[in-house]
């Protein structure tokens, strides 16, 4: 069996999300990766991809059409390469989620999104109902197209391999959509839903002023800032900070809950985080029941100390 993994190649580097998708493919036989990009970035991206461990070959497709991850040319390319593969995977990122279902339809295959476990070559586990249930599905399609829930697979290292690079000629197709511009929020804080790290505050922050001590910590971690509903209702922070059942549902790699008691409504919004840290003065707070690491004490001492310790 052979799998093809579509990589997101941003600025010539291979992000962690794509490396998680490669990890997911590991049980599915030999792995080729597909790197696409504009003429000016493709070389660097291909070189980065070639260093990934466990890759049979790197296939590249360059051109203006691929410079911005547009779904139409990507899907057409995947369809063209599909006869050579049993499984085609991508990380469940904006690009993977846009291109793979489109390609799957062209191949008359039912896409399987957000795969969090691969039982065997045709059996997959994925979340439904916002993660409140997990289904195990068996695909009867001759070929499987999957997007990978990246938090469920530890990424392969960025280096260690030396795979050959092979350019493919993309199929020609009429331009259907055109990239105009991108607005990156990189200078500001990341969006809550997209953040890899979230620092979140609750009633224990005591005031809008108190809440501000989370900012240096978030800066240090490149984290988004969230809040519990109590903190929002008390006016410490605006509404769109709210994490929880009625706010945003998040699943970062690291969630640091400061002064949050852990009402179930809040837990419903962040329980899928990979690692949860709780800082609370009440050692009976329910948040400790879900936290991987807990610190009992005054957050007004702990948070600055933690910030300082991350120097």
């Amino acid at each position: 069996m052979t799998a093809l993994v579509l990589l997101d190649a941003e600025d010539g580097t291979i992000p962690q999300t794509s490396r998680s998708a490669i990890a997911a493919a590991a049980t599915l036989g030999e792995i080729d990766v597909l790197v696409t990009g504009g003429p000016d970035t493709i070389q660097a991206a291909a070189a980065s991809a070639a260093k990934l461990p466990g890759i049979r070959k790197v296939r590249t497709a360059a051109g203006e059409a691929f410079a911005h991850g547009l779904a139409e040319p990507l899907a057409a390319l995947i369809v063209a390469l599909a006869p050579e593969y049993d499984h085609i995977l991508a990380a469940a990122t904006a690009i993977g989620k846009s291109a793979l279902p489109r390609a799957a339809a062209r191949l008359d295959v039912q896409i399987i999104p957000d795969v969090m476990d691969i039982k065997d070559a045709e059996t997959f586990v994925r979340p439904i109902f916002a993660g409140n249930a997990l289904v195990t599905l068996r695909s009867s399609d001759a070929k499987k197209l999957l997007t990978i829930r990246t938090a469920s697979f530890d990424p392969v290292p960025a280096e260690g391999g030396n795979a050959p690079i092979e350019a493919v000629t993309p199929p020609s197709s009429a331009e259907k959509s055109r990239f105009l511009s991108a607005e990156h929020s990189s200078t500001e804080r990341p969006q809550l839903e997209a953040a890899r790290v979230i620092v979140s505050g609750g009633r224990g922050m005591q005031s809008a002023e108190g809440f501000k001590i989370l900012e240096p910590l978030a800066d240090k971690l490149g984290a988004a800032i969230g809040a519990s509903r109590v903190a929002v209702d008390a006016g410490f922070v605006p509404n769109d900070y709210q994490v929880g059942q009625t706010g945003k549902i998040v699943a970062p790699d690291l969630y640091i809950a400061c002064g949050i008691s852990g009402a179930i409504q809040h837990l419903a919004g962040m329980k899928d985080s990979k690692v949860i840290v709780a800082i609370n003065k009440d050692e009976d707070a329910p948040i400790f029941q879900v936290a991987d690491y807990g610190l009992v004490g005054d957050l007004f001492q702990i948070v600055p100390a933690l910030t300082a310790a991350l120097e």
């Binding site: 059996t123 993660g131 997990l134 289904v135 009867s140 899928d272 690491y293 933690l306």
Partner: peptide, 28 residues
């Protein structure tokens, strides 16, 4: 015709309490 057959459905495993640490240094 469905291409995906559901073999089973389950609720996600509940998180278990981790450890309480003694210091910031230990946490880092």
């Amino acid at each position: 015709t469905r291409r995906l057959t559901m073999l089973s459905m389950a609720e996600p495993p509940t998180r278990k309490a981790g450890v309480k640490l003694g210091s910031v240094a230990e946490l880092v």
